[in-house]
Design a protein around this nucleic acid. Sequence first.
DNA 1: CAGGTGAATTAAAACGTGTCAATCCTGTCC
DNA 2: GGACAGGATTGACACGTTTTAATTCACCTG
Lengths: 348, 348
Amino acid sequence: MSSTEDVHRPVGINDVAARAGVSPGTVSNVLNRPERVAESTRRRVEEAIRDLDYVRNSSGRSLRAGRSDSVGLLVLDITNSFFTEVARGVEDVAGEEGLAVVLLNSAERSARQQRSLRLLAEQRAAGAVVMPVDGDMTDLLWLRKQSVPWVLLDRGDVGADIACSVAVDNHAGGMAAGRHLISLGHERVTYLSGPADMEQCRTRLGGLRAALEEAGIDPDENIRVIETEQLNAEYGEKAVEEVLAGGPKRRPQAVFCTNDQLALGVLKGLGERGLSAPGDLSVVGYDDVHFSALVHPGLTTVAQPKYELGRAAMRLLLSELNGSGHQHERVRFAPELVVRGSTAARRQ
Amino acid sequence: MSSTEDVHRPVGINDVAARAGVSPGTVSNVLNRPERVAESTRRRVEEAIRDLDYVRNSSGRSLRAGRSDSVGLLVLDITNSFFTEVARGVEDVAGEEGLAVVLLNSAERSARQQRSLRLLAEQRAAGAVVMPVDGDMTDLLWLRKQSVPWVLLDRGDVGADIACSVAVDNHAGGMAAGRHLISLGHERVTYLSGPADMEQCRTRLGGLRAALEEAGIDPDENIRVIETEQLNAEYGEKAVEEVLAGGPKRRPQAVFCTNDQLALGVLKGLGERGLSAPGDLSVVGYDDVHFSALVHPGLTTVAQPKYELGRAAMRLLLSELNGSGHQHERVRFAPELVVRGSTAARRQ
DNA sequence: CAGGTGAATTAAAACGTGTCAATCCTGTCC
DNA sequence: GGACAGGATTGACACGTTTTAATTCACCTG
C-alpha cells in the first residue's frame, strides 16, 4: 500500500533513496544497470519503489540524456487504413525497444508537415519515420541538422546518399497490374492517378506503360491519364464521369487506380450509373486495404506489405540510432497482385 | 544563415542570451510573455534566435513545469476507422492549443492498456482521452492519482462523479435501429454482439429490445443474440453460419450488428452463400464508418458523430486542465439512423 | 534635490535524472 | 598486521528551462 502523504508531492528518485537508506545514484543504478548493485541493496531499493509507488520522470531522463525516448511517425492521412497498418508495424517494433510513438498527421499539407517536424525537434525525438508530403527535403534536412535522424517511408526515389528508406517497388506494381489487364484482353485502359507530383503515382504509371510496351501495345495511344486532387473515395467517385466521357463506344476496357480508395469510389460511381465491374469494365486498385476484400465484387488490387513496411522502417531507424558507423540503407519490398472479382476477361 | 560551429553543440537559451547580450531569463520572457520585455531588446533576442536557429527544448520545459505539453489518446483499435476519425477530432483541438497528441493503441488488451497508462504517467502527460478496454477502473484511478487527468470516451455508463465523459446515446441508437426494422415489417431479428462485457454492446441491445416491446413484440422470443470475440469483419463473416443455422424456415428477418465492421463481414458472408441483403434479410450496422457508404448495397447504419466526439472529449479535457474549480461533465450526443440499401420491407 | 515609483532586467534557485570520479568497505595476500 | 585489490556506494555536478525576488535605472513629484 502506498502511504497517504504522497498524493500531492510527486515522489522522485530522492524520496526512494531516502526511504531505502541509500544515495540517489544507487537508485538510478538499480533502474538502469541493476548488475552493478549488490543483491541485498537492490532488493531494498525495489521495495522502496513499490512502497512509494514511484514512477520515473521521463522529462528528467531525457533532459539529462539530451534526447527523449520517443520517435515520431508522420503520416499523410491518418484516416487511410494503409497508414494505420504501417503505424501498427512501427508501433510494435518501437514498443519492443521501449520507445513511445508519437503519431503525427500532415494531412498531405506541407505547412502541417513543417509544424510536425518542428515539434519533433523541440521534443528532441530519438528519431522519426516520415512519409513526406512532397519532394522538398529542406525541412527534413533541417530536422537532421537538429540531430533527429529519420527514415523515409514509401518514397522510392530518394537515394541512399540522403537517408534510409523503405518502399515497395512501384514500377513492378504498375507492371503487374498492366500485365494482368493485358492477359485479360484489355488494351484501352484509363489510369486514375492522384496528384501528379506524387512520385508513387508517376512510377506506377511508368510500370503500366512498360507492361503495354512489352506486349507491343502503344501506351501513348491506349492509356488515358486522369488526375485527382486527393487520394480518397470521393474523388474516385467523381472521376467516374470523366472516365465514361465519350460514350459507350470510347469507354475504356479497364481502369487502373493508383490507390484502393479511389478504386472503391469508382466501383460505387459505376453502381450509381447502373454499370458494374467487371461486366462493363475491369477495375484494379493499389494497396489492398482491408476493405477491398469486403466489397462485392472483391477488388483486384496490387497488395503492399503494409505492416511489414512499418516494421522494416522502424528497424532501420533503430539500427541508425544504435549503430555507430551507420550507412544508409534502402529496403525494397515486392508488391503482389491479388486477383479478385473486379477484373475479368474482355467480352467479345 | 546559421554559423558553422552550432552543428554539434545544441544551442540553448543561454547561447541565445549571450548572443543578444542579455540574461537567460529575458530570453525566456521573450518566448513566454513577450509583453514584459521592451520592444528593442525583444527584437534583439528574436534576431539572435533566428541567427542561431534556436529551437526550444521541451524536456527542460516540462521538467521545470512538472508536466509535459502532450496529451495521450488511448484507442481500442488503431485499425478501425471509427477511432481514427475520433483521433482527428482530438488532434485538431489539441493542435489549436499547442498540445501534441501521443496516440496509443491498446488493441483491446488490458495488459497493453496498463502499459500505455504507465507510459503516460512517466511522461507526466498533461492529460489523456481514454477508451477503456473494460469496466475495470483501477489503472485509470491510479493514473489520476499520479495527477494525470483524463476524459472517458464512448463509455456512457460511468457517472460524472468519477470523470468527464463523452459518449453517444447507445440506447437511443439501438432503439432507432429497432424501430426502423419494425417499420419494415421485421420481427424476428438476430443481434450480432461483440464481447458481452462491453457496455456499448449491452446498451444497444437494450435499445433494440425496448423498440420491440414498444411495438408489442416480445423481445425474448424474437431476438436472438450471438456474441463474437472481436469487433471486426472476419468475425462477422464467420458468424453468418450461425445466423443462418436452422435453415431458411427459421432464418431471421434481419440482423442488427453492433458495429459496421461486423455488418460488412456479414454482407460478405451472405454473398459467399449466394444470399444478399436486403433480398434475403435486412442488415443494419452501427458507427457509419466511411466505407459503409461504399459497399453495394450501401449499409444502413446508426451513425455516430465520430469527429465531433473527439473534439468534445478534447475540449472537456482542456477545461479540466485550465479550469480551477472543475466539475466533471457528461456530454451525450444523439445517434442518427442512416438508411441505405441493406434494409428493405419484408417480402410477403 | 531627496525620495519615490514603476518598468525592465537580472541572478539564483529549483525541477529529476544520469554519470563519473572519488570514497568506502570487505576480504585476501604476503 | 599492513597493504592492496576491487567491488559497492556516494557526492557533486550538469542538462535547459521557468520563476521569484532582488536590483538597476530613468523619470517624476513635492
